[in-house]
Write a protein that binds this DNA or RNA. Structure first.
Lengths: 153, 153
DNA sequence: TAATAATAGTTAGTGTGACAAATATCGGAA
DNA sequence: TTCCGATATTTGTCACACTAACTATTATTA
């Protein structure tokens, strides 16, 4: 494969991901939803699977632990989640979506879906499937190669 | 189009872009290249088009101005670039790739290309073209809608 | 049981992104 | 010439990503 042709896919991905996030955030702000895109990701996952501990939540949402710690801090400050001590393991917490949290997820979900759909104008379901396949392949190609060539570090 | 099907493309994009960046950064570190992925993007663009001012550079690289200011600060600290006063406009600088900067671009480029290619295993040129078309369409769909619905903000 | 390893989570440091506001300068109109 | 709206860059603040180091707790095992 030609090296040149593929040389900038990383920048392309980066700039598109940023655009998507930025667009969503602006729409959130416009609706006076006091929430960030990443915080919403956590809420959405908690809504489907409440009372996970932070490690499980980090796994599901592809966030690293320090990042998740801070996001949970912010969500707790807003009263949308709370940390409940794990009955059997005092090292870990169950992250619990509060009633207020559930309320906002229910209230905001329709608009969130609408906001997301904006990106798909002029694109088809086949495009989506292709995109998903390609991105998943890229992810897998680069995943789990943490130690490769890192002997000098 | 079904709303559910497309609901998580944002997370998919975000996580893939992060993986690509993370992989590249680890390889950079493994090679003892004292540079970040975003700094490299700037260097690469300067190499093709030296002595742009920061606004032009921000435009080309899709960085906002404050971010670019800080990246240039870091590159200047490393001696890879320097700010030269614009002969006609004292508000702006020409960002100049130094000899050291040029040297590193030349030295590092082959490895950078190799690192980028890793992501494309099991994928074809047609996949790349599709990916580019889809991401560009998404970008355009969301671009220039800054003010839409932002009346409350 | 005491020492050790592994796990859950937090904190700190650096780099980046978005946004708002400040500063300096430029260019044109009154 | 002076004023005023644009332009170029910087600074400050908050949020997130990644690494490394740290605390507390649990599990292992000698």
């Amino acid at each position: 494969m030609s090296t040149d042709l593929f040389s900038t896919y990383g920048d392309l991905l980066d700039r598109t991901a940023r655009k998507v996030k930025q667009y969503a955030q602006r729409r959130f702000n416009a609706e006076n939803y006091d929430i960030t895109v990443d915080q919403w990701l956590i809420l959405r996952n908690l809504n489907q699977n409440n009372d996970l501990n932070q490690s499980q939540l980090a796994e599901i949402t592809d966030k690293d632990h320090p990042t998740l710690t801070r996001i949970i801090d912010l969500l707790c400050k807003k009263g949308l989640t709370e940390r409940r001590i794990h009955p059997a393991d005092r090292r870990s917490f169950n992250v619990h979506l509060t009633e207020l949290g559930k309320h906002h997820v229910a209230e905001w979900s329709p608009k969130m879906a609408e906001i997301r759909m904006k990106a798909w104008e002029n694109l088809t379901e086949a495009d989506y499937k292709n995109l998903k396949r390609i991105l998943d392949t890229i992810y897998k190609n680069l995943d789990g190669v943490k130690s490769e060539g890192t002997d000098k570090v």
